[in-house]
Amino acid sequence: MDSGKDKEDQAAGGNGTKHLAAVAILTAVTTVFTYIIRVPIAPTRGYINLGDVAIYFTAFTFGPLTALFAGGLGPAIADILAGYSQWAPITLGIHGLQGLLAGYLFRLLSRRRSESPSGKAAGYTLGGVAGTVVMTGFYFLAGGLMVGFGAALVEVPGNLIQNAVGLTGGIVLTAAVRKAYPPVERFSW
């Protein structure tokens, strides 16, 4: 006899198409968060893009594999649309790895502590730190090869701030979306 969850999965089209649809939707969301939605920083008249917010949200809510694909493809597509296609292959790999690690570590730690608040907090922290180190470190290395390590070093503080904003926003949105729309748990992969 099918369980309620199995019925829901069948209604949603089975595991294969459900996960494919989730990756496609979250790729589009991450692209929009990276390319369209910008938070102005009044003192500098600059902008923070929310791509990392979407990547961490995807990692913590949908799991490491969705974050690997959507987290890599979304910003890569945004790079192409914004006219920075030379960074697209690098972005695909780095942000995908960022999402994969953040999602994997969050799941590992939160499940190890039976989804307790302390487990989730540990997962958010370690996942965020790992994601930050991977993203900042690999962008520094790739930037070093592309434009020299001097110019690549200038990008490091901005990437750290981007990750801090992304992690904070990702955690807040994960909690908010889970509370407002509990069925989101079904799509975790």
């Binding site: 949603a12 089209g13 294969g16 939707i25 926003g169 407002a180 729309y181």
Partner: peptide, 26 residues
């Protein structure tokens, strides 16, 4: 705003999934 956008986006997953299955994907 972002929470609302994300929830509306996530709600698109089921219909898209069913549409793909009807078209023979998977």
């Amino acid at each position: 705003t972002l929470t609302s956008v994300l929830i509306q986006s996530v709600k698109s997953i089921d219909p898209l999934s069913m549409a793909l299955e009807i078209r023979g994907v998977g």
